[in-house]
Nucleic acid binder design. Structure first.
Length: 222
DNA sequence: CTGTGGATTTGCT
DNA sequence: GCAAATCCACAGG
C-alpha cells in the first residue's frame, strides 16, 4: 500500500467495544487493493453490533445466540472482515472488535468514493457519470462498489499490511457526528448505535432523518 | 415524494 | 420452514 495516503490502523484500534470503535471509524479510509488497481472510500456511516457478553445482550446482532459457522469470525481476534450474504443476493461488510473470545463488530454502511470511482460505478452497473452518492451508500452497495464478497473476503485480517483490504487514517478530522437507531433491523430498534457524518451526501437512507448531536470523547490516536 | 413487493441464498429452529 | 443488518423497480399522489 506504499504511496497511498495515511497509515494502517493497528489491531489495537479495534480491540474495544463496537460502540466505541464505530464512531472512531468515521472519516477513515477503506482501501481494497485489486491487482494493480486500488479502490478506496472514506467511511461516512457505520453501525455497532454488540457481542452476547453485554448486559443486556444485543438481540439484533448475528453473534446474539453464540458462535455458529457463519459468525465464527466475530469471536476471533479484532480487525478481521466479517462478510455475510443477506437476502440471498447481497453482501454486508463488518469489522470484528473486542478481544479474541468476545464477539462484536461494526457494520460499514456507506463510503464516500476516494479512489477508483469509475470502477465502483462499473461494479454497480452504473455509468461513469452516475451521482457519487449512488456508488457506496448502503451496506450492500458498498460491497458491490468495493468488490467485496463472502467467499473472497470473509475472515481477512484487515489490520495486516499484507492484506488486500485495509483501513487507513489519512488525518481527516470528522466534523459533527450524528447518532440514530440502526436501520433495517427488527429487534432493539431504538438503540442509538448508528453513527454518521452529519449532513454528508453519501450517508444512506432518507435525508433529514432525526439526528442527535454526538461528540466522541477522549479518542485515542493510533 | 411515498409505499409496496419480488428476487434469491443462507443459516438456524 | 422461514426469517433475514437489502436493493431496485414500479405504481400512485
Amino acid at each position: 500500500m506504499r504511496g497511498f495516503p495515511g497509515h494502517l490502523l493497528p489491531r489495537a484500534f479495534f480491540e474495544a467495544s463496537p460502540e466505541m470503535v464505530a464512531p472512531r471509524l468515521l472519516g477513515k479510509l477503506l482501501v481494497h487493493r485489486i491487482g494493480t488497481g486500488l479502490l478506496a472510500g472514506r467511511i461516512v456511516e457505520v453501525e455497532a453490533y454488540l457481542g452476547p457478553h453485554n448486559d443486556p445482550p444485543d438481540p439484533a446482532a448475528h453473534a446474539h445466540r453464540g458462535l455458529t459457522p457463519r459468525n465464527q469470525v466475530l469471536f476471533g481476534p479484532a480487525g478481521h472482515a466479517y462478510v455475510y450474504t443477506i437476502y440471498g443476493r447481497y453482501f454486508c461488510m463488518n469489522i470484528s472488535c473486542e478481544i479474541e473470545g468476545q464477539a462484536g463488530c461494526v457494520l460499514l454502511r456507506a463510503l464516500e468514493p476516494v479512489a477508483g470511482a469509475d470502477r465502483m460505478a462499473a461494479n454497480r452497473g452504473l455509468d461513469a457519470g452516475a451521482p457519487v452518492r449512488m456508488l457506496a451508500s448502503g451496506p450492500s452497495r458498498l460491497c458491490q462498489a468495493m468488490s467485496l464478497t463472502r467467499i473472497s473476503h470473509n475472515g481477512l485480517d484487515i489490520a495486516s499490511a499484507a492484506s488486500p483490504l485495509e483501513v487507513r487514517d489519512d488525518g481527516f478530522t470528522p466534523g459533527e457526528v450524528m447518532v440514530t437507531a440502526r436501520i433495517g433491523i427488527k429487534h432493539a430498534v431504538d438503540w442509538p448505535l448508528r453513527f454518521a457524518l452529519a449532513g454528508h451526501s453519501c450517508v444512506s437512507g432518507p435525508r433529514g432523518r432525526t439526528a442527535t448531536a454526538f461528540v466522541p470523547s477522549k479518542i485515542p490516536s493510533y
